[in-house]
Every structure is written in C-alpha cells, then in structure tokens.
Design a protein around this nucleic acid. Sequence first.
RNA 1: GGGAGCUUAGCUCAGCUGGUUCAGAGCAUCUGCCUUACAAGCAGAGGGUCAUAGGUUCGAAUCCUAUAGCUCCCACCA
Length: 882
Amino acid sequence: MNEISSKYNPQEVENKWYAYWLENNVFHSEIDETKTPYTIVIPPPNVTGILHMGHMLNNTIQDVLARRSKMLGFNTCWIPGTDHASIATEAKVVAKLKENGIEKQDLTREEFLQHAWEWKEKHGGIILEQLKKLGCSCDWQRTRFTMEEALYESVISVFVDLYNKGLIYRGVRMVNWDPKALTALSDEEVIFKEQKSKLYYLKYMIEGSQTGEYVVVATTRPETIMGDTAVCVNPTDERYNHLKGKRLVIPIVNRAIDVIFDEYVDKEFGTGALKITPAHDLNDYNLGLKYGLESINIFNDNATLNEYGLQYAGLDRFECRRKIVKDLEETGLMERIEDYTNKIGCSERTDAVIEPKLSLQWFLRMEDLAKPALEVVMSDEIRFYPSKFKNTYKHWMENVKDWCISRQLWWGQRIPAYYLPNREFVVAKTKEEAFEMAKAKFPDVIHSIEDLKQDDDVLDTWFSSWLWPISVFDGIRYPQNEEIMYYYPTDDLVTAPEIIFFWVARMIMAGLEYRKEIPFKNVYFTGIVRDKLGRKMSKSLGNSPDPIMLIEKYGADGVRMGMLMASPAGNDLPFDEAYCEQGRNFANKIWNALRLVKGWTTDDNEASQHQNDNIACQWIEEKFNNLLLELEDAFSKYRLSEAMMQIYKFVWDDFCSWFLEAVKPEYGKPVSKITYLKTLSLFEKIMQVLHPFMPFLTEEIWHLLRNNAANETIMQSEMPKAKTETNSQLLQDFIQMQEIVIAVRAIRNEKNISPKAALPLFIKGDVSGTLTNQYAALISKFANLSEIKPVFNAVEGSVTKLVGSLELFIPLGDNINKEDEQRKLEEEITYLKGFMASVEKKLSNESFVAKAPQSVVEGERKKFADAKEKIQTLQSRLSQLR
RNA sequence: GGGAGCUUAGCUCAGCUGGUUCAGAGCAUCUGCCUUACAAGCAGAGGGUCAUAGGUUCGAAUCCUAUAGCUCCCACCA
C-alpha cells in the first residue's frame, strides 16, 4: 500500500500501457464471421500536419466509440491514415525548396515529386504518432495513405469510369484561381473575407463628344480596365438614355468600347454604370457570353499583368492598382474615391486573393450523383447528429454545382487523359491502354506511344478522399473482396461540420455510386474548438495550446475528459485548460479510491457482513445499474459528454462519498471479506464503463485490482450489462437516510460543532423505512452520532430540522439561541403558507380540477396536505419555544 | 440577399410528447475543516422574472406570433 503514491502519475502509466496494447495487438481487427463488425474510418489528417485541438476532440470521440463498441462485443476496426493534401503539401514543399534556393519551375515533375516524397517520408505521419499519445486505438496495421499505390489506382479507375459514363467533362469555365499556388480551386476552398477597400469612380469619355461629355463608372478594381470590353447600364435607367448607340473610351487605355443595356445592373449602386471585364469577373463573363463580347485576359497566372497591361505589364495586380489610380488622378480621369467594405474571396490554403480566371478544367457533373445522396440523408438511412445539419445538407444538395476536379499541381493523382498531336485526347488507366485507344481512334495521327502527352494536372484531393471508406478496403479495385464485403458500410463517421460538402456529401455519393450502399450509418458532427474569447483556434492567431504539452501536463486521460466535458455533438467547444485540470483531478480521485481499497485488510474468519455494508452494497449496485441504463441511453443519442458526466458524478458522489465511506472500516480494522470482494468487483465494473473515456488510468487500475494477475486487458473485457428491474424502495430509503445525514451535517456547520464531537439525534415522525437498524447504523456512522432514537414529542433545548415529514432534534442545551431558532421557524412557516396558498388557488379553480388529468390534481392535493401538516408541526414547535 | 440555429445561475450547458426530474448539472463563488484514500481533498451554503412583449391553455422554460441580440451556412452585387 505504501508504495502507491498519493498523486496519480500519468506519464509512466500511459507509455507502459500503450506499448502493451501494441505488443499484444489488441487494436487489430480481422474478419471474423461470428462477430458483427463495427467500423470507423478516421478523417485522414494532412500527412504533413501536426495535431491540433480539433483533432484531439475528433479523435477522442472516435476512440470512445471504438473502445466501447469493442467491449460490447463488436469486432471493432478503426482505420487510421493520412491524406496527401495536394495544395497544402505542395505549398510546403515549394516553400522548403525556395529556402534552399530551388525554384519549382526549375525542376522537372519527377524531380519535384521526389522532393515531395522525401518530405512526406520525413514529416509524414508525425500526426499519427501524436494520436498514439492521445491513446487512440486505431488498427495501425491498416494505416492507409491516399497516395499509396492501391488508393492512387482506385482514384484513377474511378476517374476513367466516370469519364466513360459521361459524368466527367472538360470545359472552359471561370474558375477560382489561386495566383500563389498557381492552381484552380473549388468554390468550397474559397473563403470570403470582409475587407476595407475603396470604390473608384472613373471617367469614361463619350467617343466623339465635342463637349467632353463622359460617364462615370464605379469599380473596386481599376487595374482591370485594360480588360474592359463594354460598359453596361440598366435599360430602364433614364439617366443613360443618351448613351444608346454611343461608344465610350476607356481612360488611359484609350480604347473605345460599346455600351450595352441589361437588367442585371443595379441602378442604385455606384453610378448605375458598370464596366464589363469578361475575363476577370464571373458576372461580367456571363454578360460577355450573352452579348458576344470579347474577353481580354490581362493577367499572367501569378497575377502580374501581361502584354495587354500596356505600360503596366509585369507589375503585380495590386501594385498596378496603386499606379493606375495615381495616373488616373493625375490625368483628371478619376472623379472621386470612396471608402468601401466588401467581401473578397481568398484561398483557404494560401490566403491569396482569388482571381477569377477563365481556364480549361475538368469537371464532374453532380446532379445525378446528388439526388440519391440527398435521399438517404432525408430518409434517415444515414443519421446526422445533431440532425440540424440535415437542413444544411439539403440546401447544398439541391443547389449543387459541377465540381471542378482538376488542380494545376504535381503532388496528387495525375489526370489520366492523354493528348494526341491533333489536340484530341483519350482517357485510360495507363499510357499503354491510352496508346491502344488512340491508335484505334486516330490511326493516322498516332505512331508511337511517345506521341501521347499526359495531362499535367492532378486531381483535387477530395477526389481521393471521397472514396476513403471504400478504398481503404480496396473496394474499388476489387469490389467483391472479403474485407470490403465484411467491413463496409462503416458505422460511425466523426467529423467537422465545415467539411460536410467537401467530404461527407461526396463520400455518400461515391458510396452509392460504387457500392450501391451508404458508406456509413451515423455521422457525428463535432463542434469547433474555440478559445475563451470565442475565437476559433487557429495557427495564425496562435491561440491554440499545444496538445502534446497539454497531455504532458494533465495526462492523456485528463485531456480527453476535458475535451469531452463541454462538447455536446454539434456544439462549439469553448476550450479552457480548467477542463483538463478537472479531468486530471478526476483521475487522481479514482487513484486515491484505489489506494483506500488496496489498503484494506480482510478477516478471513469473519463470515458475516456488517449491516452497514450489506445495505450499502445493495444500494450501490442499484445505483450502478441506473448508471448503466443512463449510459445506454446517452450513447444511443451520441451524447458523449452527458455519458461522461454521469460516470463522473457516480464515481465522485455515489461511489466515493457514500459507498466507500459507508463500508470503510475503522482505522486498523479489517473489512469483511464479502464487502471487500464486492467492492473490488464494483470497482472493476466502474473501470470498464469508464475505460472508453480514460483508457490509461482504467487499464492501470484494472491490473492493480487484480494484482497484475490477469493477462486480459480491460479493453478486451466484456462491458457490464444493465438489468431491467430496479429496487426503487431501496433507493428511496437511502435518499431519506442521506437527507438526514446532510441535515445533521448542516446543523454542525451552522453551529460550528466539530465533526469529531459525537451528537445524539432524536427523530419524530414515521421512521419505519429509515430507522430500521441498518439505516440507523449508517446514519450514525456518516453523521457521527452518539445515539439515535425515535421520539413522540419534541425534545427541549434542541436544534430542529425538517426532513420530509420527519422532525429532527439535536439537543444542544445552552448552545441554542432561541431567537435564532424562532426566526428560522417563522421564516419557514411564512414560505410554506405562501406555497399552500398558491396550491389552494389552483385547486379552487374549477376548470383546473375539471380538465387537468386526475393524477395531477391528486398531486396538488397531496402537496396541499403535506404543507398543511408541516406548518402544524412547525407551529407547535414554535409555541413550545416561546 | 437567402437559409438554419441560439438566448436558462458568474462560466459552460441539460431540460424529450406542456403538469413531482421543473427550475437542474458541472465548474466557479462563499463558509468551516490539514477528519489516517485524496487540499488535485472533505463538509455545508448561496445564486436564475428561463432574452423581451403579446397570444394559446385549467396550466408555458417548453407551443404560436412579433421584437431585440448573437452564431453559423449559402449567395457573383461592381
């Protein structure tokens, strides 16, 4: 006993048990037809990423679900892995090369990819090691990576298939161009940020006007005037009637353009005249299409101006803006400048301001894929927790747009389209296949395989992630393989609401398209981890604590508990280290309960159990059974924090404060064997229900309770099951006992009586349930009483308290302040009279009595009678005092 | 601009089909305790017009309507 420290030390325990679990391969799952599978696929973090608080929350939840399901007898398989994250990773590699004086454009694709793989080998998978620190029970033998061969091939074969089905097409579209990463982005990767900018009012001279007439056009982007091909006004705008048939001259550029008339223009905004730059604005592009306007692209890919930029060619777009504004002012062509706040699209990955750009990209037609995917969610075949996200999902799915799946990057799955010298192309899984196809199609054009040139672009990362639940089991390449047949569909998906469209929706589409089956049954949306000020935790704000430091400080169990404590599904988690501290304290509390129990000695000769112990054991078993029922309920609704809190309260209050205190032997005395064994068995069961939340501590205690005799890990033990019948009388009686104890303790506190001084207690009233010997003994023990006796009359010179209909007396003789006692009684009587009056009012209301259910009316009558009785008791007490 | 959601104790949140789970929990606070498992602790206590205003009902934190404030998602307003 002495060798157990009074403080729980997580560090050594955690390392020891994680190593033990790995050695014994307890996280690994294999097909077992006698068991039901329970499958989770991890949302694959970026391969070069490091753990942040969001991961901590997300993976704690998955681990709780995984560990619990295993203990419930399922064949649990939690598949870990990482995502190649093409933009993010490529950006990092480019930056790294730059530091070493190497530019990406100086490298061949092969050379670059070699660097990228080196980077991946060096930094990849750090995050997986961090998950181990958190205690995650992933099946590490099954670790996958979205760029590994099998998954790469799966992606390519899906691309080819969708192309052949006519769902993938190539087209010129206005795309979101990231001029820093030099790639197109999907709409979802663009974040609109509010920005203070300026609205510039430029003068466009009317061509041929003798009087120097001009039209003022408002724009936020004066640097794009070189790309102007029209000015548009609303046809109903009378101010501009005179422009019909006229042409305008672009300032500085001195090129004449048409005036067009379209309802699209808002008369109220600016001057009601809009400059049209089809190559650099989506709306302008659409108007350009409508009116057959020319598109002049004035930017290079990196957003510097090209030869159309005239004297500004070569300048960056923002520098050009400054310069052009200055030039306009100097030439008097700037009418005025106003402050203006608007929203500007920025790249999620590089934060660069997005440039709308016309380009040739690959698209996936979404409409037909979206329909069935919407249905399975609306019909609850796939359930969302919380369900409010069904709305969000529905809205998006009904307005889904085609998905731009090409990215102008090298790190990723390269698009399997092969171009012929005649600008035609074929799509095939391999170059050899492509060659055969091309030869068949264009025998005259193609002679050698070298005549084919593969598309330079790679696929959007999400185009591989959307296959994740299938491809981790190789179900794309081998649709009938045993693994996919056994483990798919997966059970629970735990993810962030931010990627409901990026990922969740698309996985559902892919699942239905390629397995004709949903990819998962439940989706648990975690909240966003925020700091105390309510800001989202992010690297750029630097407001996120380092998770590994937290684990070192509070223990993985403490941090896990801290994360869960304040995060119901879908609610944001306002993180505070205090939660981790609470978690650590809880671990310590349990640790000390263990120290207590391990310190007990038993008397083997003593056959019988004390009355005290007997009742306490029965009671705690009832309470524990209640706990099991509550946990079942909470888990069925995915209310993990509620489940956690229920265990917390059970352990701290019921188990430690009442049960252990009830059976704790006097110092130096043994405990009866029966009680001892029951306590150990209960302790084990508590560790089992707690294990999914606090895996390390519970494993440690599980073994200490058994003196390390068992080889079995707690993770492979069977979760205790609830019985359905409960002994509610016992629970009620115990509560009354507790109330009496609390009342006596309160009196001690009020009167400043040391807990060491034993007191006599007299009880008036019906004590049949409570004052049988067993409860009397318990009350005496808890409240430190010298005697406990029922009486029929009030006891003079006592402090009194009402517990239900029982009246307690503790004689204190001279210690009593009569006035105090009187005042307290009077206050209580006043309160009760008020209460009685309100009940009476209700009862005298005829329609209440007539319309309310009988049981409610009865309840009110009982309240009335009880209050009346109490008042009588108190009043007689009061008159005695006087 | 469109949509969804939220507002209950100092903080974070429960409160399901309106009524004995109805005003709750944890943390924080206050008071007293170094009581032989635990001061990372023990015992006790205080604290809320359930955002506001109407309505429905015998009865509203709960249902309806409006108002205010907050949050998130979607959308191309120069």
